[in-house]
Amino acid sequence: MNPTLDLLYRLADDQLILGHRNSEWNGLGPILEEDIAFSSMAQDKLGHSLQLYTLLHELGEAEPDTVAFTRNTPQFHCCQLTELPIGEYDFSLVRHFLFDHAELLRFEALADSSYEPLALVARKVKGELKYHVLHANTWVKRLGTATEEAIERMQAALEFTLPYALGIFETTDAESEIISSGLFVGEEQLQRRWEASISKVLAQTALTLPDLRLLTPVTGGRHGQHTEHLQPLLDEMAEVFRLDPTADW
């Protein structure tokens, strides 16, 4: 695939899928503020996905709604981390923390992308992502220094989630061209920045970051290989759209 399309699909699909997962907290949050926070982040992420699908459309891909709602699992390029069910709040919070730290650093780097339309979107998105990271840090610090049960649950969630989080940085065949053309600094560079960024926050808690080099990243998502959880999500997301794909909303 053309390196620009390859990069944009990965970015856009991550936003769309995690946005939908976050929206599942609507009405279920452990406290009202968290219900609203996850719903707001969902809305932000769907907005970001729309901006990115619009860039794809300008490059000749189908309309954003068509791309979002008519593809099936093998055509999605999101990392597997984003598609996992919301589970308990500890998992959703840790996923949000690990993903959005990478996301903020990613969009800060993309603000200097050689592809100007993407740089424009990134300059907008990175400011909004600061609020996502602020939110994640607040709760990770709060629960990561709270009761024994809270710390144990957060630690277990961290250990479960980290191998999936390492899958954020899975590369494709286009990686070397993406870096050499100045589209993006690349996943390896991003992962280094991310490790420093999450370590700084975790150091202020009772949580321990395991040695990441001893973990096996869960990959495949960037190449269309997904868990059994993605297709049911896609079916639910597209349920209304598919009733009448030509309807004007």
Partner: peptide
Amino acid sequence: LRTPFGATL
């Protein structure tokens, strides 16, 4: 600050 997320974005 109670939460950075309110009734609208």
